[in-house]
C-alpha cells in the first residue's frame, strides 16, 4: 500500500499510471550491475520513480577521473567505495526505496546468489565479459535484461526478454578487446535514462519495449537510429543447440 506521503510524492506520475501502477513499482526488485556512469543515471531515476528495492553490485572505488560522468559521486567521495557513496545519495533522494549494495566482482560463480530473487537485471557494466555473465543468468532465470553501453558521444540500448527476443550473445556474439573508452558524461546520462524508462515500462506493462530493437544514440549528430535484431538459431547461449 502507498502512504499518504508517497501518493503526494508521486502525484505527477500517478496521474499517468494510477496508484495501481505506483504500487507495481513499489513491489518491484531491480538488480543493477555497476555503479559507474550508466549505474548513476539508472539508479537515480529508478530511486526517484519509487522502485521498491534496488540492489547494486560494484567492485570499484571513486576516483577523480570518474567524476565527469558518474554523477552519484562527489569530490569528497574520492577514495570511498562507489557503493557507499551511491547508497548515501540514493537514500537521501527517496527514503521510501530500499537500497541494498554489495561490494563484489560479478562472475559466473557468484552471479546467481547476487541476483537472488530479484525480478530483472539492468546492465550498467563497462565490459562485455561481465555482460555475457548477466545475459546467461537472465536467460536461465527467464528475467529481462536491460542492456546499455556507451562510447564517447555514442550509446546503445536494447531490452532482452528471454524466450522472446534475441539475447545479448545473439546480437554481439564476440567479445571485443577490453578498452578504456572515452565517455562524455551526458552519454551515460541519455542511455541510462533510456534503460530506466524501459524498466519502468516493463514493470507497469505499458508502451512498446525495445524488444528486438537496438537503439543507437549519436549525440554528436543528435540522431537516434533503430536497428532490427533477430535471434541467432545457433546462438551458444540461447539457441536450440546452445545453453
Amino acid at each position: 500500500m502507498l502512504t499518504k506521503d508517497e501518493v503526494k510524492r508521486y502525484e505527477r506520475q500517478i496521474s499517468i499510471f494510477g496508484e495501481e501502477g505506483q504500487r507495481k513499482l513499489k513491489k518491484a526488485k531491480v538488480f543493477i550491475a555497476g555503479a559507474g556512469g550508466l549505474g548513476s543515471s539508472i539508479s537515480i531515476y529508478l530511486t526517484v520513480a519509487g522502485i521498491g528495492k534496488l540492489r547494486m553490485v560494484d567492485n570499484d572505488i571513486v576516483a577523480l577521473e570518474n567524476l565527469n560522468r558518474q554523477i552519484l559521486h562527489r569530490d569528497n567521495d574520492i577514495g570511498k567505495k562507489k557503493l557507499e557513496s551511491a547508497e548515501e545519495k540514493l537514500k537521501k533522494m527517496n527514503s521510501n526505496v530500499e537500497v541494498e549494495v554489495i561490494f563484489e566482482t560479478i562472475n559466473i560463480g557468484n552471479i546467481d546468489e547476487l541476483v537472488g530473487d530479484f525480478d530483472m537485471i539492468v546492465d550498467a557494466m563497462d565490459n562485455f565479459a561481465t555482460r555475457y555473465v548477466l545475459n546467461k543468468t537472465a536467460l536461465m532465470r527467464k528475467i529481462p535484461l536491460f542492456h546499455g553501453a556507451v562510447h564517447g558521444f555514442y550509446g546503445q540500448a536494447t531490452t532482452i526478454i528471454p524466450g522472446k527476443t534475441a539475447c545479448l550473445r545473439c546480437i554481439f556474439p564476440e567479445v571485443p578487446p577490453p578498452t578504456v573508452p572515452p565517455v562524455v558524461g551526458v552519454t551515460p546520462g541519455v542511455v541510462g535514462c533510456i534503460q530506466a524508462t524501459e524498466v519502468i515500462k516493463y514493470i507497469l506493462g505499458i508502451g512498446d519495449l525495445l524488444e528486438n530493437r537496438l537503439l543507437m544514440w549519436d549525440g554528436l549528430n543528435a540522431v537516434m537510429d533503430e536497428v532490427p535484431l533477430e535471434k541467432n538459431p545457433r546462438c551458444e547461449d540461447c539457441g536450440k543447440e546452445g545453453g
Binding site: G39, D126, F128, A149, H151, V227
Partner: peptide, 10 residues
C-alpha cells in the same frame, strides 16, 4: 549495408 563497431563502456 550497416556497419557497427563495438560500444562497450558503462
Amino acid at each position: 549495408v550497416a556497419i557497427f563497431p563495438p560500444v562497450g563502456g558503462g
